[in-house]
């Protein structure tokens, strides 16, 4: 994402997780704000450009360089705000003209893109900018450095380069970058600031609905994830219980004989399923039932040994759940 002049900072580093997009946009719109708001997330950045309270452009850029604008960008931003736990909001007030240039940079018409400087006549190009009374932004950059020149009616408004935080009046840095080997230029033009006033994304989109949809989708996603986790947990518990049940059957079978498995099945069924084995009351009732049935089949000594073994197995199993 471009580094942009900070102008007059209104808010910096506001935690996005506590904000609601409709509230932010309404506040900026009602305050007739001119400038831009940047939402900085871990992997994405969103820029919203306002002109006298009107939202004139929106851009969301991902880490992979993929850009979205307009309605899609608003939806993407809402989704990022809802789903990302972190992120910061910065709001910078700019002049009307500079805001127009920022808009040109973000969504203006691209006249040149990645054009190698040495292959063009920069002097002629600048003359043409002046002659055509162009509004826009000329970006000069190499792989390491970048500088921008903002134009209004063909006249430079100011210069901005990486490393600075605001518009400068000196063109020395821009000239220095232009002289570097491999320097390239982008040229973006836009309508005048007055014409831009005719555009307001807030009027053509239902921000509240976009936000509500994102919240609902996020909630649905969380619910689905929770459900999946619950089912996974349930399955794991069910698997463990089945193993415990089998272990208990083998213990009872060892002392009572093959009929022991049937006795365990019956007691488990009477106590509401194998979950009773890890429930304090259920396990007690289960043990009593097994003991009562075993009294009809095995000696007191063996019953004692069996009950001790069962009790220990169930206690260990309980601690694992």
């Amino acid at each position: 994402m471009f580094l942009l002049p900070k102008g007059n900072p209104l808010f910096e580093n506001l935690a996005v997780s506590k904000l609601k997009l409709p509230d932010v946009l309404t506040k900026l719109s009602n305050g007739a704000f001119t400038g831009y708001a940047s939402f900085v997330f871990q992997a994405n950045t969103a820029l919203l450009v306002f002109e006298a309270g009107k939202l004139v452009s929106v851009l969301v850029e991902g880490q992979n360089g993929k850009r979205e604008s307009g309605f899609a960008a608003l939806s993407a931003l809402a989704e990022l705000m809802v789903t990302t736990g972190s992120g910061a909001l910065n709001v910078y007030k700019l002049s009307k003209d500079l805001t127009m240039c920022i808009h040109a940079l973000l969504e203006g018409e691209t006249l040149y893109k990645a054009q190698e400087l040495k292959l063009i006549d920069i002097k002629t190009l600048l003359e043409k900018v002046k002659e055509d009374q162009m509004n826009g932004c000329l970006r000069i950059y190499t792989d390491e450095h970048s500088a921008m020149i903002f134009y209004k009616d063909g006249n430079p408004l100011g210069f901005f380069h990486d490393g600075s935080s605001d518009i400068e009046t000196s063109s020395s840095e821009s000239q220095k970058i232009a002289g570097l080997p491999g320097a390239k230029i982008d040229l973006f033009s836009t309508q005048s600031a007055d014409e831009l006033m005719g555009t307001n994304l807030l009027e053509v989109t239902n921000i509240q609905k976009i936000w509500d949809t994102s919240v609902a989708q996020h909630k649905s996603e969380i619910d689905r994830t929770n459900l999946e986790r619950q089912e996974r947990d349930k399955k794991a518990v069910s698997q463990k219980l089945a193993e415990l049940e089998e272990h208990v059957k083998s213990i009872v079978g060892e002392y009572v004989g093959k009929v022991g498995r049937g006795i365990v099945d019956k007691e488990i069924s009477d106590n509401g399923g194998n979950a009773c084995l890890i429930d304090a009351d259920g396990a007690e009732k289960f043990m009593k039932g097994i003991e009562r049935a075993a009294k009809l089949l095995v000696s007191g000594t063996n019953i004692k040994l069996m009950m001790e073994k069962l009790s220990s197995t169930i206690s260990i199993a309980k601690s694992e759940f």
């Binding site: 009572v256 004989g257 093959k258 009929v259 009809l296 089949l297 095995v298 000696s299 063996n302």
Partner: peptide, 9 residues
């Protein structure tokens, strides 16, 4: 026949 492998059989 059911309890033949138990103590009491």
């Amino acid at each position: 026949s059911v309890i033949k492998d138990s103590d009491i059989s």
